[in-house]
Nucleic acid binder design. Sequence first.
DNA 1: CGATGCCTTGAGACTGTTCAAATTAGGTGG
DNA 2: CCACCTAATTTGAACAGTCTCAAGGCATCG
Lengths: 246, 246
Amino acid sequence: MANALIRRLEAYVRLSADDRKALLLAAGEGIRTFDARRDLMREGDEPRVVNLILSGWACRYKTLPDGRRQIVALFVPGDLCDPHIYILKRMDHNVGAITPVTAAQVGRDSFERLISERPRIVQALWWHELVVTAIQREWTLNIGQRTAYERMAHLMVEMFLRLQTVGMAEGNSIEWPLTQLDLADATGLTPVHVNRTLQAMRRDGLIELAGRRLTILDMAALKSTAMFNPEYLHLEHEGAHLDANE
Amino acid sequence: MANALIRRLEAYVRLSADDRKALLLAAGEGIRTFDARRDLMREGDEPRVVNLILSGWACRYKTLPDGRRQIVALFVPGDLCDPHIYILKRMDHNVGAITPVTAAQVGRDSFERLISERPRIVQALWWHELVVTAIQREWTLNIGQRTAYERMAHLMVEMFLRLQTVGMAEGNSIEWPLTQLDLADATGLTPVHVNRTLQAMRRDGLIELAGRRLTILDMAALKSTAMFNPEYLHLEHEGAHLDANE
DNA sequence: CGATGCCTTGAGACTGTTCAAATTAGGTGG
DNA sequence: CCACCTAATTTGAACAGTCTCAAGGCATCG
């Protein structure tokens, strides 16, 4: 079940058998399931656990007092919500399930045991954290500078690649559980405008989107209209010098 | 010179004399100065050092192939650009000086020595990293959901509070080296519209902005139009249980 | 005192919004 | 398996916020 995390971390560094075992052990405790649209953590809560998404899609979101809502990040299997989050006294945002979600909730103690015993995992977690932050920056750029059309194209390419690294792309298509309202909240657009932009993307032959499945018909064109530069995902195998030699 | 960092980390946890000494030592090596508008690090570079801003303002920014530019973060004295950045193979963004900047560039080795010997500093750095990420999330919300007027109000309150925690606010005013073009790039607006929005804010008696100095005339009103919730800055003294007992 | 960068102004155009309603799809219970 | 209920998508038309382009004014610094 936690294979996605291992697969994800191994985008950075190959882990030893012991590392993998320790990860699986930590992820094995405290597995919880959440219905779609339920919150895993809520703003104001004291964070006590580190969430690891095992299956389903989740999101981080923030709201304004008048109800405006921004999805600031998406989580797919293998994503770790926030290593060390328990350092903070209160959550400054919410984590919500988009689909039904199963998550491993690792308590502070076992998390700290894990990192105190497995230095290679510490490195991998830092890498993970840096990548998550880099994605957040790219979203800021995305919302700040790209047009609606480019913005949605960018999000689609990103999610496709991220799912691909955990083995969840099937050819040129992925599961796409986001409603148009979710998409609107993630891109800072209106649901109505999202709808119209999707229609334009279909008309242009870039994508097919129906029945909670996204098929990318022309990846080259999609990437180029999105001005997609994959560097920020840091997907190449960067920590080769740290590889476990098993 | 590195007092701002200590002051900033001590927003989280009180450090021991030894901790402080170790920080000052690390920050003392490799001090460099940069002219305004120069880059400290550039996209594509291999990151070798951790930058600590000692004086001046800097920013992180990303650009699109056609020249559009987004400032995704601002740095003021006491900010650490990216602990552990050297884990990544290449920079996915630029760090540029807004004003003349002096920065301590801590090499990988001395950085790792610092954190291997001083566990309380490790905690403090994780806190720092979590706060930086939280700010990035708030910027995503800011650009995605707030109007131009609200957005600029929010940025002003944030920078005021951040400067205040490092002792660089003077009453209700701060240095404000951002040109309207910088402001536009940071908020995802047009320079023209920034100009008009500033005029509206002045007309409404919220601020005074002239000669690179921002004075907040009505903090309560500014906060409320910005829907400012300071939680994301995690400014309260959170790590009390970790305090050095000296 | 001239040059350069920054700020300001105007008018018109466009992207994305608002509001409201109709249509379709998906899930559930009978 | 159909009927229903609700959630999600789609459409239209008017509107608003922000942008574009272009020009003029001001300030600071050598």
